[in-house]
Design a protein around this nucleic acid. Sequence first.
DNA 1: TCATTAACTGTCG
DNA 2: CGACAGTTAATGA
Length: 234
Amino acid sequence: MSDCVSCENLNCMIKKNIHHEGIQKYVSEKHNIICKKSQQFIMEGAPAHGLFFVRKGQVKVVKTGIYGREQIVRFAHDGEIIGHRGFGTTKHYPIGALAIKETHLCNFTNDVLQKMLKEVHELTFDMMLFYSEELNRSETKVRKFAQMTVREKVIDSFLYIYRKFGQCEDDFFNIQLPRKDFADFAGTTEEQVIRIISSLKKEKLLQTSGKKIGIIDVPLLKKEISEHNYFLDS
DNA sequence: TCATTAACTGTCG
DNA sequence: CGACAGTTAATGA
């Protein structure tokens, strides 16, 4: 349970490199944390105390905007890293993070992680790939916010959720999010999201049932935004 | 059951 | 397109 050897999460880069010499002693120093639904485990602006790996669960990463408006920076699930920008020279977390549903986390202090990265180079390489991807995503996001209409941003958000979390055979996302969260992620308001959802429902591209949302026709929905945007995997 | 939260609608600037 | 107000539906203590 606590040592990564028996961990079932194959997406985790620690797990991937667990066979390397010398990593074990660091792994034994990590902390296991269990967060209940909607529990916040990183406070924006709080002193950084390491980095979190999602072992199992769903997390949203949040940043408070200038007018007190909340922006969802990204979502994360099994195997992904949270709080990585608090690592290194940064002394405070620039973001907040909270569990969407019950989530199991592994926490490494900066100190332990630093030693680990200096020793296990394959892990360092995987970290670099992660940072590189993150940068790529945020660059794409800048363009999205600058050039897309609200409708396109909302659709894009749905496709992001679809890519990331998928949906079951009944065509509903494998994650439950209130409309407000879609709004905070797409950079608009809850009302706009609601309106776009109902118009997409009329077009038979989307379906809802209470809080559940799902895409009926993925290729068609993609077409809705690819008219103006050369759609790359963001 | 009541009280709170979330989903939706209409309107206005 | 966003902000506000107001109604209805769902949720849960």
